[in-house]
Computed example of a mutant assay.
Amino acid sequence: MATSNDLKNGMVLNLEGQLWAVIDFQHVKPGKGPAFVRTKLRNVLTGKVNDKTFNAGIKVETANVDRRDMQYLYNDGGYVFMDNTNYEQITVSAETLGDVSNYLLENQVATVALHEGNPLYVELPPSVILEITYTEPGLQGDRSTGGTKPATLETGHQIQVPLFIDNNTKVKVDTRNGDYLGRVSE
C-alpha cells in the first residue's frame, strides 16, 4: 500500500481487481479546496488509457510487477522464454505477446513483466535489426509518393522500405510502429 502522494511514473496499481500502470501524474494544490493527484493510467493487459483523480493522501494498492530480461527460445504453441539468471522457462501466449512477435527472433533478449508468476506483457528495445528476406526490385519512374515498397522481414512481418533496399539487407526497424529506420552496414 502506498498513498496517492507516493505515485511515480511506471508504478503499477491494483484498482478494482485490474492492473494499471501510471503513465503521468500531477500533484495539484488549488487555492481553494483540498489538494489532489491527477493521473493518466494505462491498463496493463488491454492497453486502454484512462484519467483518474485521487484525493491527496488516500491509500492506493500497488501491485508487485517483476520485470526480467529473458531470452526468447522457441514457439511451441506458445512463446517460450528463459530467465538467464536461474534458467527458469515460462510460456507466453500469442495474445499476451501481441505485435511484439512481428520483431522477435530466437535467442533475442526481451523484458518480460510478471505479476504473481503470470506474464503480463513483453517489451522489446525501441529498435531491432532484422534482415529483409524478400522484396521486389525497386524501379525508378513515375511515382507520386516518397518511393517505398513492401518488404518481408525474416520474422515474416511485412514493412515499407525505400526502393534501394534489396533482399538479404539488414535494416533497423522501430518496434513501436514498424517503421523503417535505416540500413545497417556490417
Rank of each mutant, 00 (worst) to 15 (best):
Lys52Ser: 08
Leu163Thr: 07
Phe54Cys: 08
Ser93Lys: 10
Val171Trp: 01
Arg68Val: 13
Leu97Thr: 04
Asn14Gln: 14
Thr39Ser: 01
Lys52His: 11
Glu136Ser: 13
Ile159Asp: 00
Ile159Ala: 00
Gly182Asn: 07
Met11Gln: 13
Glu88Asp: 13
Val173His: 01
Glu186Leu: 10
Ile165Met: 11
Asn14Tyr: 01
Gly141Asp: 07
Asn5Val: 04
Gly117Val: 11
Ser185Leu: 14
Ser93Val: 07
Gly138Leu: 08
Leu105Met: 14
Gly57Trp: 00
Ser4Thr: 14
His27Ser: 11
Gly31Val: 08
Val171Asn: 02
Leu105Lys: 15
Leu41Met: 11
Val44Met: 15
Lys8Thr: 15
Gly146Val: 13
Ala63Cys: 05
Val92Ser: 06
Ala56Trp: 02
Gln18Val: 02
Asp99Phe: 12
Met70Trp: 05
Leu104Arg: 04
Lys29Thr: 13
Val173Leu: 00
Asn86Ala: 09
Thr111Trp: 01
Glu136Thr: 13
Arg38Trp: 00
Asp76Phe: 14
Phe25Pro: 01
Leu19Lys: 07
Ile23Asn: 13
Gly78Val: 12
Gly10Tyr: 05
Gly33Lys: 06
Asn118Phe: 08
Phe164Trp: 12
Ser4Phe: 04
Gly78Pro: 02
Lys52Phe: 13
Gly182Thr: 11
Gln160Val: 05
Tyr180Cys: 08
Lys170Ala: 04
Ile132Glu: 05
Leu41Asn: 07
Gln26Tyr: 02
Lys29Tyr: 04
Met1Ala: 13
Thr152Glu: 14
Leu13Tyr: 04
Leu114Phe: 14
Glu95His: 11
Lys32Asp: 07
Asn167Cys: 12
Val37Asp: 03
Lys40Arg: 15
Gln158Tyr: 03
Asn107Thr: 11
Ala56Phe: 06
Val49Arg: 15
His115Tyr: 15
Lys149Asp: 15
Pro150Gly: 10
Tyr74Gln: 12
Phe54Asp: 09
Tyr87Ile: 05
Leu41Lys: 04
Gly98Cys: 10
Arg38Ala: 10
Gly146Leu: 14
Phe36Gly: 04
Asn64Ile: 07
Thr135Trp: 10
Asn168Pro: 00
Met1Gly: 13
Phe164Ala: 06
Leu104Gln: 09
Asn168Met: 11
Pro34Trp: 03
Gly33Thr: 12
Asn168Arg: 13
Val80Gln: 08
Gln71Thr: 15
Gln26Gly: 02
Val12Asp: 04
Ala35Lys: 08
Leu120Trp: 09
Val171Cys: 06
Lys40Ile: 12
Leu120Arg: 14
Leu19Pro: 01
Val92Lys: 00
Val22Tyr: 02
Glu131Val: 07
Leu153Pro: 00
Ser185Asp: 11
Ser101Glu: 12
